[in-house]
Amino acid sequence: MLSISGPSLFIKQAMDYLRSIRKRELHIKVLLMICASVTFVGLLLIFIFVFRESLPAFTRLGLPNLFSTHWNPDVSHPEAGNYGMLPFVVGTLYTTLGGLLVGAPLGIGSAIFIDQIAPPKIGTAIGRGIELIASIPSVVIGWFGLTLLVPMIGRLTDTSGFGILAASLVLGVMVLPTIAALSLESLRALPSELKEAAYGMGATRWQTIYKVLLPAARRGVLVAVILGMGRAIGEAMAVQMVIGNSRQLTFSLTNGTSTLAARIVTDMGESSGVFRSALFAQGLILLILAMLLILTIRLVSREKKETVR
């Protein structure tokens, strides 16, 4: 057939075919790029929308109102209320710290246990168990806290039981899997020569862990704790269920208070106007805190690369 139409036509057809493939490849590449850019567009949109919605709070209420210690919204006349979020900023930092105090030793300790001490089978089983904790929905953990931890704390301390202590325990459970998984990852990434060298010099297992392995993995462990911190700062539901949701600024472990995320959950339903904007402003603060943590992690892991060089 081809010989009838001549070689030049054959070449032309082949070229056309190749060109159509190249065109299709280009279309697909562009399509895939669009998919990948959704992460950027989504992030941008989140920033824009949360910022835009919180803008009225900054312009109409002003910073002194927003950063006072007095939270007293007016549902029917939003402009007349007080929207000081400072008690909740303190509550957020306080519960986050508490959650880390509970979750970080447990998480890092379990990671070391799985990696260095446990017999392989037990180690894997415990690792799987900790992974499963991460899959428990936060409302279930909150309900567990509300029905078991809060009454228990209440009985022990002779208070209502709601408050920072209960929230810290709940958050500790929630950050544990994050911290354990990432610490384990960074411990496993260490070269085995490190351990062998330490043992070879007569170090005990504890000395090896404490003086060699932990210092070597410290950046990874630090990143794990920072990511756990991010989880604790933003957790809304479980905390909202056990912290008591009062409006006071408190430093006591067993007084009811609230966090930024929990306040948003509590008040959003009945809010309107600048009241709603004030809640979005709290969301904006959470957003900024999360971004600061991500930048910190970038900084920590970038330093790592430089020291390796």
Partner: peptide, 13 residues
């Protein structure tokens, strides 16, 4: 960054 944002922020968005 997206994966580190609190889910309540997604809710607001």
């Amino acid at each position: 960054s997206l994966s580190s944002l609190p889910s309540i922020v997604f809710g607001l968005f």
